[in-house]
Amino acid sequence: MFDLTLIGIGTGNPDHLTLQAIKAINAAEVILIPRKGAGKADLAELRRAILAEVLTNPATKVIEFDLPVRDEAIADYLARVEDWHDRIAAVWAKAIGAAGKVALLVWGDPSLYDSTLRIAARLVPPERVQVIAGITSVQALTAAHGIALNEIGAPFVVTTGRRLRDEGFPLGVDTAVVMLDGECSFQALDPTGVSIWWGGYVGMAEQIILGGDLAEVGPQIVQMRAAARAAHGWIMDIYLLRRG
């Protein structure tokens, strides 16, 4: 049985690491780095760059593994994700071997729209999992634009592109943060009276941001996102919508 530490690393900028994260990295016997294929090689390279800057323990072993892809032949979305998580857990187990203290570097924070904790539960009892909080893309986005996440005394919702597209602007709030959106789902909304603050690669050297009235800047964001994805082979983006 091993102990697993999930370390939030922010959005790929080594400056986002907390002192707690750096200590946890150097306390690990094994650090796992997933590889997501040639088109997303930058993601593994960013993890390597972070370790090159902060890992000083010569006894820590870094193991890389290839991340399995989702089986798109499984029609049901949740079943497809569950199958994928099962296969990722199996790859983890093989890579970990007999190690006692294992760490994974997780983008943003392990608690926000990330499946690492769910995959870990397939292998490790909760009492053997430690989570090191990280800067989220939500924080990086609002900092990049210099805006507040919520209005005075008002709630907000964090949702996904899929739900925004299928259900429209969330009910009961005027502010929505949208993650995991590969299709610019804001295009499905009536843009009247809606503002958007968008960011790609927020917090990283490649950061690009754009904000304004949705009707005006929405088409520009679509074009900017497509160009950035073509240039890098991948993109991580997030946006905040506000009505009124």
Rank of each mutant, 00 (worst) to 15 (best):
V54K: 10
V178C: 04
T175G: 01
W234G: 01
A75Q: 11
V62R: 02
G168N: 05
V62L: 03
A154N: 07
T160M: 06
I33C: 03
I31A: 04
V62N: 01
G37N: 02
D15F: 02
R35S: 10
I7Y: 02
T11M: 12
N150Y: 12
I88P: 00
L210I: 14
A230S: 15
G134A: 09
L240C: 13
A120L: 05
F65R: 06
R80P: 00
G233T: 08
A228V: 11
A215F: 07
E151W: 13
Q139A: 12
A228K: 13
I25E: 01
L67Y: 11
M179E: 03
G8L: 09
V69S: 10
G10E: 05
Y77D: 13
A44F: 03
I208Q: 15
L46E: 05
F2G: 01
L123G: 02
E206Y: 05
T159E: 03
S195Q: 13
D237C: 11
Q223E: 13
G12L: 04
S195D: 12
G182V: 11
D66L: 08
V157R: 07
S137C: 14
M1L: 06
E206Q: 15
E53R: 15
D66K: 06
G200I: 09
G172K: 10
K23W: 05
T18W: 07
I7H: 01
V30W: 03
R122H: 10
R243V: 12
Q207G: 02
D71R: 12
A144P: 08
V217C: 08
D3F: 11
Q139F: 04
K61Y: 00
G37A: 04
G134F: 05
K36F: 11
V30G: 00
A73P: 00
E167D: 13
V138D: 00
V177Q: 00
L104S: 08
L149C: 09
A59N: 15
V106N: 02
L117Q: 14
A89Q: 07
G100R: 15
M204W: 12
Q223C: 00
I74P: 01
R165L: 14
I152Y: 09
T18Q: 03
A28S: 13
R162P: 00
L19S: 09
I96M: 09
G108K: 06
D83M: 02
L123A: 06
L4H: 04
L240A: 08
R70T: 09
D86E: 13
V202Q: 00
I50K: 00
D213R: 15
D76W: 06
L19W: 04
A99F: 11
Q207I: 09
A99M: 12
V194R: 06
L105Y: 02
G193E: 05
L241T: 09
I132Y: 02
A227V: 11
V194G: 00
I74G: 02
C184Q: 07
T175C: 04
V131F: 08
G203D: 04
R87F: 08
L43A: 04
R47G: 01
A95Y: 05
S195N: 13
V54F: 13
D71M: 10
T116H: 12
G10F: 02
E167N: 11
A226H: 14
A27W: 08
R87C: 07
P68S: 03
L4I: 11
A120H: 07
A148T: 15
